[in-house]
């Protein structure tokens, strides 16, 4: 019986390496590439200059959402960025809807940590436009 687990481990490893992410096999490569980064990035959203979350806004306009995540921004929170993009795409103002009453900005905090642990950050906006605050149940 003691040989079953090592054989199962070997088979799972070999098949996963061969076929990649194919349920329920996987190469489990989440965060594997972080060694290539010299700084990080965290998405942010502002409404009228105050930090908020993107799902508190709707009726977006005045920008091209394709520019939300330019190449070269080393962000490991891609779920949040993808969600924000989906959210914005699904809640754009209709062409005849007029602009929202809130100045909206989406972008990234670029973050550096030096070898002594000093943290520095800089905001890099990627979208600037308008939106409305979202209220009530949908």
């Amino acid at each position: 019986m003691v040989w079953i687990a090592p054989v199962a481990a070997l088979v799972y490893i070999v098949v996963s390496l061969a076929i990649g992410d194919w349920f329920p096999f996987s190469r489990y490569s989440m965060y594997a590439s972080i060694g290539a980064r010299d700084h990080g990035a965290a998405p942010y959203c502002k409404a009228n200059g105050e930090f908020t979350t993107v799902d508190r806004l709707e009726h977006f306009g005045g920008f091209d959402v394709a520019h939300i995540y330019p190449q070269g921004i080393p962000c490991s929170l891609e779920w949040q960025v993808h969600e924000a993009r989906r959210w914005i795409e699904a809640h754009m103002a209709p062409p005849d809807g007029g602009p929202g009453d809130v100045a909206m900005e989406f972008g990234f905090r670029l973050i550096w940590v030096d070898d002594k642990g000093h943290i520095t950050e800089k905001l890099r906006p990627t979208l600037n436009g308008t939106a409305r605050r979202r209220t009530g149940r949908r």
């Binding site: 687990a5 799972y12 996963s16 996987s26 190469r27 594997a32």
Partner: peptide
């Protein structure tokens, strides 16, 4: 259950291997 344990051991090893392959 022995096989289930083996698979999970393999999954952990794969996670480590992915880090070694992509970042050293």
């Amino acid at each position: 259950w022995e096989a289930g344990c083996g698979v999970m051991g393999g999954a952990f090893f794969l996670a480590g291997l992915a880090k070694l392959r992509e970042s050293g």
